[in-house]
Design a protein around this nucleic acid. Structure first.
Lengths: 215, 215
DNA sequence: ATTCACGGTGAACGGCGTTTACTTTTTGAA
DNA sequence: TTCAAAAAGTAAACGCCGTTCACCGTGAAT
């Protein structure tokens, strides 16, 4: 087992990275439709066929972009929560960080939840699901809900896994709404740059309330 | 002003309807990708160019499919709620009907909330928004939330319009999740055909709880 | 009877993802 | 250093796609 890569491997990685970088730029700006293999090849001064020496298909290439976006998403959520802050505030911050990151890269986020409906997809519980970034995000969310339940902040009869899914769905829904109806007053960042954040917090508050134990 | 159409108009409408019918069938089964003008023309024994005598572009054709889906969605939600049932149950039934209809026609629903992000889109408050079926759906939801607030079931400080958006986002999110992760145990219809409905009700319950006044 | 708009068509344009057959470059062992 | 084999890169083509254009027939209105 080699500690360092051979020059050939280094070279291969460099070219691969160049392709991904160009792809990332175009995809972020114009999404899946705007990203074509031919255009990509043009930008890096290669022929279209060359791309296929590095990626099996356009889909696998885009999948890689999506995975690294989810890595970023997960990281943003992680670093946004400070273990010392009280639970409810932490939960709200977590939701807000998720939505904000999603909105920062609309094409990435939307693409991750569109496209053909594969009934195969990663099945929860299957080995491999927890290794994807998307799976990790779910694990984090699940853990937070669990903490809420055991600390007594959330209703004790809640199932952590189901609740996490419910919560995730609601976060996801708001992110999608903001992406697809940016002209709605409540979703637009207004002149003070506040309107959207206010709405996100309102949404997060409603969600957390729905899980809280009646005191 | 003519009370009856001329034969030419009748003919035109018939052909238009034939195109839409074939398009609807293909789109429901295979979505936007599976629907091509050429294939459509093939199915109705016309030439591809003929379609353009009836529709400006593929996009406008698909837009018409989406609009009529939302008409159906709105109708389903309407007829699912019985004014005599208690408010909370009605609210839950409304959410469930929305999600169920969305899931019945995955491609229609997903297509309506995907595609390019147009910053123009229908702006709330603009004339024309309330005339779209999507706009109507929002009006209905808004009205229900309003009823909840004024009856005291929901917190009195809630803004009806904002709350309706928050609620809609959460419904939308679950619908999308079910569409894109049908293999998740909670989202799949199990051997008893129950699992998914149970989850939908759980979700709806959480949402309503989040709006309820603390008693 | 003669327009003339309308419905319909075949062929083409430019784009797409992908494959194939081919040449060039790089590599690693003899 | 030589040389065969593997890898990198390419031009051209295949079969799709949405869309347009020039053209032709038909039927209705003047």
């Amino acid at each position: 087992m080699e500690l360092t890569e051979t020059p050939a491997e280094r070279r291969r990685h460099r070219v691969r990275a160049r392709i991904l970088k160009a792809a990332e730029r175009v995809f972020a700006e114009e999404g899946n439709e705007g990203l074509s293999i031919r255009r990509l090849a043009d930008e890096i001064d290669y022929s279209p066929a060359a791309i296929y020496k590095y990626f099996e298909s356009k889909e696998t290439l885009v999948d890689e972009l999506k995975e690294s976006f989810f890595e970023r998403l997960l990281q943003n959520v992680h670093t946004s929560v400070d273990a010392s802050t009280p639970f409810e505030e932490r939960a709200r911050k977590c939701v807000a960080a998720y939505i904000r990151t999603a909105v920062e890269k609309p094409h990435h986020y939307a693409a991750a939840f569109s496209g053909p409906f594969r009934s195969e997809g990663p099945t929860e519980g299957d080995p491999g699901f927890e290794t994807t970034q998307k799976g990790q995000a779910f694990v984090v969310l699940s853990g937070m809900v669990n903490e809420g339940i055991q600390s007594g902040a959330f209703r004790h009869e809640l199932d952590a896994s189901l609740t996490a899914k419910s919560l995730w769905a609601s976060m996801h829904g708001l992110a999608m709404m903001i992406l697809h109806m940016p002209s709605y007053p409540s979703f637009r960042v207004d002149q003070y740059g506040m309107s959207r954040d206010v709405f996100i917090n309102f949404h997060a508050d409603n969600l957390v309330r729905g899980l809280e134990a009646n005191q």
